[in-house]
Structure formats: C-alpha cells, structure tokens
Design a protein around this nucleic acid. Structure first.
Lengths: 256, 256
DNA sequence: CGAGCAATTGAGACAAGTCAAAGCTGGTGG
DNA sequence: CCACCAGCTTTGACTTGTCTCAATTGCTCG
C-alpha cells in the first residue's frame, strides 16, 4: 500500500499564474469552427443557435504544467477542453496525489453542485479550452434543454467510468491495472488501425502511477515485463505498441 | 495489494429470484406519503403533480441478500430506494468484488446512457424501492425539467463522491481508509447528537472491506486498533461509538 | 557535449494479504 | 432452558506484492 510521504514526484511549477485568455469573439465563429464540438456537449446545440453559446464562451489556453482549476477554490466556471490533455487530480495534505482522470478534446469539466471545485486540472502539454461563467451557462441551459440532457448523459458516463476505476484501484493487481489502462487508451484511440495499434501517452510515468494508484517504479517494471512477454512494444517513452490485444484483455481481467 | 482469488467470502444466495412487487396504486398516494421523498429527486416535483410520478412508479421490495440490479443485464428501469440499504458493486471474473457505494433511502439508481447496468445492487437487510420503467420516466422527465435538473445535481454529487473514493482507494493507508469511512458515515447520521456519536453499520465487515479495497481481517484489525487507541468504541458488531472525532479527522487525512 | 530530468533497474523493507484457529452470537430444536 | 450449529468476526503466524531507497541509464535541449 502507498506508504511514503509522496505519491508523486511531479514537478511543482512555482507560479500558478492565471492562464491567458486568447480571444472572445462575437458571432458563432469560435463554436462553429471548433474541432472539439463533434465530441463535446456543444454538439447538442444547432448551428443556428450557436451564437448563443459562443457569446458566453471564453476561449483560453493553459501552458504545459499550468493549473486552470484548483481544488477547493470557488467554482465560478465550467470548462470544455478543445485541444490537448489535462490531468485531473486530488491531493492529500502530505502531497500524495490521485489522478481521477485525463481530460482530452471535448471533455466537459466542472460539473458540481458544490460551490468549490472538487479537483484540480493541470495542462499536460499545451491545452486549449473554453470557459463558461456558471451563471451565463445556466441561462443557456434554461434555453436549451437538449444541452442539459446532454450534460446528464456526460455525467452518467463519467460515473460509470469512475466505478470502473474504483474496481481497478480497489481490487486489481499492478499488472491488471497497467493492462486495463493500456486497453482503455486503446479504445479511445480509434484512428490508424493496423496490425499493431500504436498508442501515444502524453502523460508521464508519474501521471500514470498516480492514476493507477501505484508508484512510478512499479509502472515502469510492469511495462518492462509486458514488453518481455511480447504483449507490448515500447519504441520510445511516450509510445506503446500493442502487439497482443487478446493477452492484454486477459490480463486486464475485464472491461476498461 | 489484492492477491488471492476472492476479494470476498460473501454469502452467495443460490437463487436471485425476482423481487416481489408490493403494490401499484393509482393517485398520488405512494409518492405523497413516501418517507424518502424529502431526501430524493422526487422532491423536485410539486405535490399537485405527484400523481404523474406515482403513475409510473412501481413500489417493490427486496429480501435481505437479494439482488435487484444485475451488472451487465439490460437496463430497463431506474430505481429509487425508499427504505433500507443496498450494496452497489462490480465483480471481476474470478469473484473479486468492489463495492462502489451503499444506497440508502432517497438514493436514485440506474443513471446510465448505456443499455446495460454497470453495477449490481443487492439488499442488505430488507429494502424497499420504487421502480420506474425507463421510457415512462423519460416521459415524466420531458414534462418536468426540474426533475431532470435535479438528476444532474444528483449525478454531479455522486461524481464528486466517486472521486473522493478514488483518492481513498488509490492513495490512503488502511487506517486512513477506515477512519474516512467512519467519518463519512458519521456526517450522514446527523440524528441523536450527544457527547459521543453512535453509528450503526448495517453492512458486514466483508462489505466494508470490499468498499475500502481491503480484506476483512485488515478492517477488523484496524477497528480493533482504533478501539485500543480510544478513538472509537465497539459496543457490538454493528455499532460504533465515535469517542474522538478530531483524532478520526486527523487520521482520515482529509474530507470524507 | 554535458546538464537536467525522466525512466529504468536493483536490493531490501514493510503494509497488507493469506492461511488457520479460536471466539462470539443468534437461531433452532430437543 | 440450554446445547449445538452455522456464520461472522477476531486474533495470530507467516508470506508476498508493492513500496522505498539508491544507483544507473537514456533523452532532450541549450
């Protein structure tokens, strides 16, 4: 079990400076041309009503390593990631970290009744996102029930994923956790299907460890073992080749 | 880490017979007189519209140990627990079990976009609940946006709780897990506030273990140690006295 | 080319798991 | 009313998967 002081030796950037607001345009432009819209809740809104949504969206970006949501702070906004990947996490007072998920393009963040954020979000690499002031989005939701319905769907799916992750954290072995993680990434990476699938892992080993409830060393050793067993290939630090999908599924124990 | 074949030695009842339908009344009666309504999503509907909801609710009960939701089965209904407590869990193929939560009076179950249930629900003791056929509830939701909004709130809260549980499962020690569990139960048990709070634990040690990602033995040993340290008292198997709330909070590391 | 950081590898420690044996407790029947 | 059974819980002795600590290797970028 996690014993030591830190569950992470993640770089702590000195200044969590406020992220930069990139632009705030009029018209439907930012939403109409958004690459992430098809995968996001925003697709619940028709093209012709898009101006309404765009009017309350503030397009922003966060530099690598920068936090744009801080656990415990007053929750004034919702977010929608449009490009890049963010790590979502909670900390214990002594610095142990649990990553609860990774948010990619289309991911909606900030759902909570509470008036403070329940987790932090930090950019891995460069992250672009839309920010919606809560009261403004509330108004839009009143006008577009389809959007609210869509949010309920998103929340339900996240809940299912969270339960799957609880199973992983509470009952799976290190090998099963790593296998499950790779599989889950693999189903989220449909493009470029060939004989062997290539995964790119934008996050560090430390991120993976804190997501799977393990240490960096155990993640590294487990990946090495999977490589030795010819189940995966590791051409470089941030890429994984899945040589034997079936073996991986058998190791994962079950879904996800 | 969990190693052996079983994460549980829970009694497996031989026949998961269908639970008994108790009654299906006309008028607003079952909902209007429902003890669980104040704590449940149903309170989003006005007294005068209650007939509408009551018309689609089927009041049922499940005997102790009986399952009324089975992971993987076609999800045809939503549920609302009105009395008793149910354990919600997921299983691995070899029988290891992770309890993802306990559902008490007012708890809404079955939120999922997927067409199969993501978890099982089993009665601990006698459980009463309302069952709503999905399409019927869908119609009610269309008529009462407040109910749908309420559901989004419920889902958001569950998501926050799930993230807290991931932190517990991924990064906390056995002592911290047990302390967190007792504290969480204590905040959900506001009545009868005295110098020492009395918790009743309707679930078995095996349930607690499978909820906290531990074994029965570790749960038992940890409770004993807390008793030795005068932090809690254990008058009998299903009751806990909290002698030192502050010590418990310090041990829990943080919230929940 | 070398500083700096992330990842890997090795050796040893320990928290929690496994296996096994009592101890309780509640229900049943003689 | 008590003996006995069955199941849950507690306790003890030992094992082990994962963590900790400590190098070493490998990348990236100036």
């Amino acid at each position: 079990m996690p014993k030591g002081i830190l569950g992470t030796n993640e770089s702590m950037l000195p200044l969590p400076r406020r992220p930069i607001v990139v632009r705030r345009l009029h018209g439907a432009e930012p939403c109409a041309s958004c690459d992430a819209r098809p995968n996001s809740v925003c697709s619940a809104i028709d093209d012709r009503d898009l101006e309404r949504l765009a009017a309350v969206a503030v397009v922003s970006k966060a530099e690598p390593g920068r936090a744009f949501i801080n656990e415990g702070e007053r929750a004034t906004s919702f977010f929608n990631v449009t490009a890049g990947t963010a790590r979502l996490f909670k900390l214990l007072p002594d610095g142990r970290r649990q990553i609860t998920g990774f948010a990619g393009a289309g991911h909606f963040l900030g759902l909570a009744v509470s008036d403070t954020y329940a987790f932090s979000a930090e950019a891995i690499g460069l992250v672009f996102y839309c920010r919606f002031a809560r009261p403004r989005l509330r108004e839009v939701l009143d006008d577009f029930p389809a959007l609210e319905r869509r949010l309920l769907g998103v929340a339900s799916n996240e809940l299912v994923a969270a339960q799957e992750q609880m199973l992983l954290l509470g009952r799976k072995t290190a090998k099963e956790r790593v296998a499950s993680f790779l599989l889950a990434r693999s189903v989220e990476t449909p493009p470029c299907t060939g004989p062997v699938q290539r995964l790119s892992l934008p996050m560090t080993r430390s991120d993976i460890a804190d997501y799977l409830g393990l240490t960096i060393e155990t993640v590294s050793r487990t990946l090495t073992r999977l490589k030795m067993d010819r189940v995966i290939g590791i051409p470089n630090i941030s890429d994984i080749l899945i040589h034997d999908q079936h073996a991986l599924e058998a190791l994962a124990g079950c879904g996800g």
